[in-house]
Computed example of a mutant assay.
Amino acid sequence: METEAGLEATAALFKVLGSPSRLLLLRLLATEPATVGALAVRSGMSQPLVSQHLKTLRQAGIITVSRTGREAAYQLADHHIAHVVDDAIAHVLEDTTPKEEAS
């Protein structure tokens, strides 16, 4: 059976996005670039845990890092991913109760 183009890569993307912690980091990075320390403070996660999640996001090409001296700032590689996350959150927050049909 032939797989539709892009399905494998999309499944891999959703696998990376399957962590609430990584989604939170992406939401934080959607507003502005940030260092590991700033992300740890804003997310409430430990610095090692933030670093681990950032590594996963970098390997997936979702975020990039720019260095100035010893300081590393992380940012979204493409803001399309922020829209995907926002749309998914909006979807799960929608009222999914079936509406009564008009008589």
Rank of each mutant, 00 (worst) to 15 (best):
L54G: 07
Q47W: 04
E94N: 14
E2F: 04
L57W: 06
L28N: 08
H79A: 03
L57V: 03
R70G: 04
K99N: 10
A9R: 15
E94G: 01
S103K: 15
D78G: 03
Y74C: 02
D78M: 00
T56C: 00
R58S: 13
D86P: 03
R70V: 01
L49C: 04
G6L: 03
S19P: 07
D87N: 12
A77W: 11
H83Q: 10
A102G: 11
V50C: 08
E94D: 13
L25P: 13
A88G: 10
A88P: 08
M45V: 04
L29S: 07
A72S: 15
T10R: 15
A73P: 02
L28R: 12
L17Y: 15
A72F: 01
V50M: 08
A34E: 13
S46A: 15
A82N: 07
S21T: 04
L49I: 03
S21V: 02
V92Y: 15
L25Q: 05
E8G: 02
Y74P: 01
M45K: 06
L24T: 13
R22L: 03
A5G: 00
E8K: 13
A30C: 05
A40C: 05
F14P: 00
R27A: 05
A12D: 11
G18K: 08
A11I: 08
A12R: 15
I63P: 05
L29W: 11
L93F: 14
H80L: 01
E4S: 07
A5D: 08
D78H: 11
E2R: 14
A77I: 00
H53G: 01
I62M: 02
K99S: 14
Q52D: 08
L28V: 05
